[in-house]
Computed example of a mutant assay.
Amino acid sequence: MINIVLFGKPGAGKGTQAEFLKEKYNLTHLSTGDIFRFNIKNETELGQLAKTYMDKGDLVPDSVTIQMLQSEVEKNPNSAGFLFDGFPRTIAQAEALDAFLVSKGQAVTATIALDADDEILVQRLLERGKTSGRPDDQDEEKIRNRYQEYNEKTAPLIEFYKAQNKYHAVNGIGAIEEITERLSLIIDKL
């Protein structure tokens, strides 16, 4: 079983690349953003709580995120592996994910970070905001707040996964096919 954590700043291309990777490697794609949006749209208790944080551009608390994610993993007991997109975002979430996977007789196989320059990503998100309707992609201040949150809370994951020999960085700038090929070169060696 392959369990991959795909991370990078908002707009780095995680969702786009996850679509290709899930097909190529027969993985169940778990996007915390999609899970949040589903729960918000369906006005679940966890969704309403998550929305209060997302509307401010803040990260949703670990306890809420972890509950949503565990529920999704439980829904896919026969999966060949999982592609975690946007999770974990903090050391506490990474530790909770490790503990949860161990309880299932599994582990994170690798983490892959899509690296890209902030200014390029801000422009990507503002463009996406014009078509996505997502309010958090239409306000540059909110975007920059999300990057600040990422730098403070998510960037420490690099050292966490390096210590486990599971961290790989990939240049997230270029044609979609080129980035997919860079990711595949890493996954094929696992």
Rank of each mutant, 00 (worst) to 15 (best):
E152D: 12
G11S: 00
G57W: 03
Q164H: 11
K189C: 15
S103F: 06
D188H: 14
L97M: 14
N78I: 01
A94V: 12
G172I: 14
Y167Q: 13
P88N: 11
G15W: 02
A175T: 08
E140W: 07
P135T: 14
L125V: 01
E178P: 12
D58M: 14
I4T: 04
D136R: 05
Q138P: 04
E177A: 12
G129H: 01
A92W: 03
D137Q: 06
F20Y: 11
N42T: 04
E159P: 06
Y161Q: 09
V108K: 09
Q123E: 15
K14C: 02
Y167S: 11
A175G: 08
R146V: 04
V60T: 13
K153D: 00
G133P: 08
K162V: 13
I40P: 00
F100G: 08
E181Q: 14
I120A: 05
T154C: 11
I186N: 10
Q67D: 15
M1D: 06
N39H: 07
R124N: 11
T109S: 15
L27D: 03
N3R: 04
P135E: 07
A107L: 10
K142Y: 02
Y147T: 06
D136T: 06
E72F: 11
R182L: 09
V122G: 04
V102A: 14
E159R: 10
K41F: 00
V102Y: 06
D34F: 03
R89A: 12
T16I: 01
D188R: 14
A113S: 13
S132V: 04
Q48W: 01
F100Q: 09
K189N: 15
G47N: 00
A116G: 12
A18M: 00
K189P: 13
E19C: 00
E23F: 00
Q70S: 11
T16L: 01
D34Q: 04
K104T: 07
S31E: 02
I158K: 13
G57K: 07
K14D: 01
S184W: 01
L83F: 10
M54P: 01
P135N: 14
F36G: 02
S132Q: 07
Q48N: 11
F84E: 03
L59N: 05
Q70W: 09
E74V: 13
I143K: 03
R146Y: 02
I158R: 10
A155G: 03
M1T: 10
V108R: 08
G172A: 14
I187A: 10
Q164K: 15
D98N: 15
V60E: 07
L125Y: 02
H168C: 12
D188Q: 15
R134Y: 02
L157H: 07
T32F: 06
Y167P: 10
L125H: 02
P61H: 06
L83Q: 09
L6A: 04
F82A: 04
L101E: 12
K41S: 06
F82E: 07
A12S: 13
E178H: 13
Y161P: 09
K51G: 00
L125C: 02
K189R: 15
G174P: 14
L121I: 02
T52K: 10
Q70C: 14
F20M: 03
N171D: 15
